[in-house]
Computed example of a mutant assay.
Amino acid sequence: MDDFLSDLTRDLPGWLGIVLVVVVVGGGWFGISRLGAWAAASSERRAAVATARATARSLRPRYARSSAALVAEPDAFALAASAWLAHASGQPLDRFAYAHPQALEPMLARYYGVHDRDDLETELVRLLVEGHRAWPHGDAEGPIDFAVWDLVRVVELCRAGLGLGVLTEADARDTARFAAGTLQARYGDWSSLGSQLERAFRHTHDEVTRHAARLAQIECDGIRTMLQSPDGPWTVVPWTTPVAGSELRMLPADPARVRRAALTEPWEAPIRAKQLGG
């Protein structure tokens, strides 16, 4: 380096040679520094991917009792349909009412903007009448069916509301049954529901970098594998499990809101009728 700099500055004015030396040496150190930072970041990304893969491989269904208890639950299909979100919320998969009330309030506030019973009822009505499907979006595979995202969240809110004691069991189960029955009629099997749910989940979580998207994909793959494992809810609960009827007890009459919402899908007809006062 010294010989190179000497040859480079031999015929230059003194001040210009000094400037050139500073640029060459400083640029070299800057390049080395950036290269080191890139290598460190790359190493961190590889470590994060390895950790995510190990976590995904270690996922197991979490039951308060057992998978048999899930199958025996009166609303087993609703629990299985919402198992993805129940798992993400750290909840047992075989209990209708969410446990750990102290952790539910921050979760509901963060993801749903729900702070009390009035908020919870308002959000349930919003998901049923409009929800995310009111603003259609798509991905590289085409349009995303956000009905699955709205309906699965309806079930989660019913389970969380019952766990917090702000919904009666009759209201919570009745509303969840409407969502569960619609999901069962709309999709052909757990795999189809899972595919649409994953696409909606990924889209709404706005992964902005390739690395973040890769980690999210690993997480999604791990959850789906867990749900479809031999002891998983999507294996032990048959798709054809009977779902009781619903009266949409919590949905108030609101003709003005019906006029603002589309509600043109066949499955939305009961919602429209109830909102119109039927």
Results as ranks from 00 to 15, higher is better:
M1L: 14
D3C: 03
L5V: 11
D7F: 10
D7G: 08
T9G: 09
R10M: 12
P13S: 09
G17N: 10
L20I: 14
V21R: 15
V22N: 08
V23A: 10
V23Y: 00
G31L: 11
S33I: 03
S33Y: 14
S33E: 06
G36N: 12
G36W: 11
A41C: 02
S43V: 05
A47S: 14
A48V: 01
V49M: 12
A50C: 05
A50L: 14
A52L: 04
A52H: 04
R53S: 10
R53A: 10
T55M: 14
R57D: 09
S58D: 12
L59D: 03
Y63I: 01
Y63D: 05
R65A: 04
R65F: 00
L70I: 00
F77S: 01
L79Q: 01
S82D: 03
A83T: 03
H87K: 07
S89W: 14
G90R: 13
L93M: 03
D94W: 02
F96L: 00
F96D: 00
Y98G: 14
A99K: 08
A99F: 04
A103W: 05
A103F: 08
P106A: 09
P106Y: 08
G113T: 12
G113D: 08
V114S: 11
D116H: 13
R117E: 15
D119S: 12
D119V: 10
E121M: 10
E121Y: 09
E123C: 12
R126I: 00
R126W: 14
L127N: 07
E130T: 14
E130L: 13
E130K: 13
E130Y: 02
R133Q: 11
R133W: 05
A134K: 03
D145V: 09
F146C: 10
F146K: 04
D150H: 06
V152Q: 10
E156C: 12
L157F: 08
R159V: 00
R159S: 14
R159C: 11
L162S: 05
L164F: 06
G165N: 12
T168H: 05
D171A: 13
A172V: 01
A172Q: 03
T175A: 12
G188T: 15
W190R: 06
S191H: 13
S195A: 15
D206P: 01
E207F: 15
V208E: 15
A212L: 13
E219G: 13
G222C: 09
S229A: 15
P230D: 05
G232I: 05
G232V: 01
P238W: 02
A244L: 10
S246H: 08
E247S: 15
L248D: 08
D254R: 06
E268L: 11
A269W: 12
I271R: 02
Q275K: 10
G277W: 06
G277M: 10
